[in-house]
Design a protein around this nucleic acid. Structure first.
Lengths: 402, 402
DNA sequence: ACTGCTTAGCTCACCTCTAAATTAAGTCTC
DNA sequence: GAGACTTAATTTAGAGGTGAGCTAAGCAGT
């Protein structure tokens, strides 16, 4: 019966700063269109921000038939954000500025199965946070489900974590805002802010690699479902009574086309030795091994069939494919494209898909974007911590001495 | 970047009337909780409505520790709604009052493949509308995708319609507000207002019968996707290279467990004659035919596996199963329940499912609920037509002579 | 009867944003 | 170079909602 979020708390001024920070100078009219508020509101808010010294008038852009626009820009950079991606064997950290440009990047070995794993992680992040000036906050991406971004309680099968109070412990020790979310969701947040998603309101992000993940963008926001568990497509059954999966079920998508499954297939065919890395299979395919190519293409076939079904279900505008696996996408592509089209009903054949360049920092960048997206969090997904980020944004932006 | 709907247009006073109409008298405090607005707002709005004569103070309910509440109720019934469900061979119509109680119900033969099919439909509805006093509007459910409730352009493969301007034509001739939506979506709207969905914000509606359909409720609202096409699960491929489907693809869910597929299986096993009705198979199973029971249970198995995958994807609180097919649910049940559980990862095993009693009027009731839900349409899904319904609601409620 | 507690409902100051009208500052056309 | 047109920005009145603090009206224990 009810639709409004309980406490949105006037996020518009922060959103205004956020746009200027992440996209550079803009005119008032542009801001009004981007933020979908009236130009009257923008006039009011910019007046306040000008008086506070947070923003300044810059050049006038040449007219194209009407009154020329006056660009507005930030006086100071509003500060940096730190992104942390946790995996089963390492932690990747990045420090980025307000437009998600990397200032520093680190990878550290990490064992999440230790009893004091969370404590250990806190220490690693602490080292990174030390000495960062004007830090807006820390974003964390984990391979598992998270109850809420601002509380940050993590259930992650692949890390062996259940009910880990990651958010609370980081917050307590770091004394900066901390947001935690599922790793694929963080990619979706980043993509929506800085990537393909700027032009879409309803679409899917799919990751291929060690696991197979998905994030769903609904009406412009990442949809988290009833308990933060949207997108567990790695455990959709695609081969009844198929190979056993790490989750205990049979024939899961991940057990059929995840990195390990592809390697196992390579070993079974005698083209890889046991314990090979995903890159080894890719090299084999690159070098012309038809067996390796066949493994990729039949994985592409399964993925295409599965995603076609998902497209029937959720009717996205497009599908964006990400993850370590895209490095070998050239080999997936044929099997995938054909299968995807072939399994779509005619009225959905227009739905496209695209891969996006991948880098080993991309996961951590996604995590950092949780912080950078807080100004735009009109639904209040980021809760108290998001509000803290917005306060810091204002404080940093209006600092009196540059 | 933007999240707000452009024009919500103060639906709260209408929502207040809507609650009183559909759920009966309530106290101000109850209204505030139900509508998720502050009690201050309710005081203001009820004051206006009391002055306008739309509502009146009724009994005082006994206290349970605090100040006793004064119930508020409508002075006049705000009027009736008409629901229309279109199928490939007939049209079902109901007239309901504000709490979805049936006042009249009709079924008429109908041929949607005729060139003047839409015109014909308009005439049928026109007959039903004539003489209805205080009509709030007409809701229509169609088996296909609809661009938007208030424009009502229909693409329906099973009816042979493509770009049919159903909404415009009905509106022009009937001179009352008309809302059109996919039939499964109309069930979801009804369920959310009057059924199981009152207690859920994120869940799924699944229909079994001639086709297999689904509706997704996201944050309390029916999600329509990028082009009104959410829920086409009938054409998810569940058996690679399986039987050919009416859509031209192979192994679609509908081609495997739709009514026709079950009948075909019965014919193949020699327990049904060609051209039998779904009820014939059900009777056979009722009477102990193990072949018939086997058909149902393996259909249940496929459905369970598919829905488990969907639960992994969208993380609903629960799944509600509806449709003509629930008449034979006792036979589906074993195969389904086992398969559904078995294909869920442990952390999702708590997700339940339930069937709801079905009646041949249920589809048309869903259609009618589009009208009754307009007062609660905070997102503006129902657009201009929804606003017209709200205006009528106010006009009827405050009419001076009862 | 008195105190404390709970829930219901009202008043009021205020906040956020909007629509409409107005002013500002350019380009284009003849 | 005078209007016509276009787009940018401001002003103003007001819609629609909130939160805090208040009063009202019951219950329960002493």
């Amino acid at each position: 019966m009810t639709t409004k979020s309980a406490e949105r708390g006037g996020s518009t001024p922060s959103a205004l700063l956020g746009v200027l920070a992440s996209r550079g100078p803009a005119s008032r009219a542009e801001l009004a269109r981007t933020l979908d508020v009236s130009s009257a509101t923008v006039t009011q808010l910019t007046k306040d921000l000008l008086r506070a010294g947070s923003i300044q008038e810059l050049d006038t852009v040449p007219s194209d038939g009407g009154r020329p626009a006056r660009l507005l820009g930030l006086v100071h950079s509003p500060g940096n954000a730190i992104g942390v991606k946790v995996t089963a064997d390492h932690v990747a950290l990045v420090e980025v500025n307000a437009d998600l440009a990397i200032e520093r990047s680190t990878r550290l070995p990490y064992d999440p199965t230790r009893a004091d794993a969370v404590d250990q992680l806190v220490r690693l992040v602490e080292g990174e946070v030390a000495g960062v000036e004007h830090l807006l906050g820390v974003g964390v991406g984990v391979p598992g489900s998270v109850d809420a971004q601002d509380s940050g309680v993590v259930d992650a099968h692949t890390l062996g974590w259940s009910g880990a109070t990651l958010g609370a412990q980081l917050r307590a020790r770091l004394q900066v805002p901390v947001l935690v979310d599922n790793d694929v969701n963080t990619l979706a947040v980043a993509d929506r802010l800085f990537g393909v998603g700027r032009d879409h309101r309803d679409y899917l992000i799919v990751t291929v690699g060690r696991g197979i993940g998905l994030a769903m963008i609904v009406d412009g926001n990442v949809y988290r479902g009833s308990s933060g568990g949207v997108g567990e497509i790695g455990h959709i059954c695609v081969v009844p009574d198929g190979p056993v999966c790490s989750c205990g079920l049979h024939g899961c998508l991940e057990a059929v086309i995840g990195d390990q499954a592809l390697i196992d297939a390579g070993v079974a065919q005698g083209i890889l030795s046991a314990g090979s890395e995903p890159a080894a299979l890719r090299r084999a395919a690159d070098e012309g091994s038809t067996a390796a190519q066949q493994i990729y293409s039949s994985a592409g076939d399964v993925l295409g069939r599965t995603l076609a079904g998902i497209v029937h279900l959720v009717n996205p505008e497009t599908v964006v494919i990400l993850g370590e696996g895209v490095a070998g996408w050239a080999h997936w592509a044929d099997g995938f494209a054909d299968s995807f089209r072939r399994h779509l009903i005619p009225s959905r054949r227009h739905v496209g898909f695209q891969t996006v360049d991948w880098d080993e920092d991309t996961w951590a960048l996604g995590a950092a974007s949780l912080i950078l997206a807080s100004p735009f969090d009109a639904l209040g997904v980021a809760g108290t911590q998001g509000k803290l980020v917005r306060e810091r944004l204002h404080a940093h932006a209006s600092r009196s001495s540059g």
